[in-house]
């Protein structure tokens, strides 16, 4: 499904937190329609990598390109670029003071300048797609975690993004809610969305991802197709890591 047009490119990206070299010479290209799973031990820099792509974290050196254009550093251009890259957080981060519907319409109205009525009908469409349209008038705190995360996905989709970043979207969920979120993501992948997904859900990775990238200590240690990676990891670090999560 993935063709060869690069959507996200990282070239020689470096980042430090004080003495900690959290991203070390990261080179990574995500192509159009590709689903890339980012995996690795806690503290290896997966979230940081994800967040540099829409500049929630700055980088020290190197380049990040979105559809061949360098990531803007500030102002309207940066906001514009962020609007084109969806992000789904581990802790949902729905706007707590807004209704579910308002959560989804805010971006289209404020950023894309879409008229209210149109934004609302499109938002309802998206909420129906992720199966929470019945909750449209509620506030986030009234929804289950799984429902909140599906709303968060709808909120991102409302911006019609070129690519979406998922940072452990199911780690904060009770086990019985994980699948309802994964199903939405599988559906998105089928429709050809370009996705970067930080997750330890191996079944998801095997089923839908095109490539698995394994990170450790701020470096990309290994990357391969999911079947190859999970069945025949090449490095000792990856093997150790896979052993450690198979227990779950």
């Amino acid at each position: 499904m993935a063709d060869q047009t690069p959507v996200i490119e990282l070239r020689h990206v470096d980042k430090h937190y004080g003495d900690l070299h959290v991203l070390q010479d990261i080179n990574l290209t995500v192509h159009k329609g590709e689903v890339l799973v980012l995996i690795g031990p806690s503290g290896s820099g997966k979230s940081t990598l994800c967040r540099t792509i829409n500049r929630l974290e700055t980088i020290d050196s190197g380049e990040i390109l979105i559809e061949g254009e360098p990531l803007p550093q500030e102002g309207k251009a940066l906001a514009q670029m962020r609007a084109e890259i969806g992000m789904v957080f581990q802790s949902f981060n729905l706007f707590a003071h807004k209704t579910i519907l308002q959560n989804v319409t805010l971006g289209p109205i404020e950023v894309l300048g879409i008229p209210k009525a149109e934004a609302a009908s499109r938002a309802m469409e998206l909420l129906r797609r992720v199966g929470v349209d019945a909750q449209a008038a509620k506030v986030p705190a009234q929804l289950s975690g799984g429902q909140q995360q599906r709303v968060a996905i709808a909120r991102s989709l409302a911006m019609q993004p070129k690519a979406m970043l998922f940072d452990e979207p199911t780690s904060a969920l009770d086990p019985e809610m994980i699948n309802e979120v994964l199903e939405v993501m599988v559906e998105l992948a089928r429709e050809g969305m370009t996705m970067v997904v930080v997750t330890h859900e191996m079944n998801f990775a095997r089923r839908v991802s095109n490539r698995v990238v394994f990170m450790a200590d701020g470096q990309i240690v290994e990357e391969n197709t999911p079947d190859e990676f999970f069945d025949h990891p090449k490095t000792a670090r990856a093997r150790d890591f896979l052993d450690s999560i198979k227990g779950h």
Partner: peptide
């Protein structure tokens, strides 16, 4: 909350 708002382009 801030990160989510920034990420949708506000």
């Amino acid at each position: 909350q801030t990160e989510a708002a920034l990420s949708i382009g506000l």
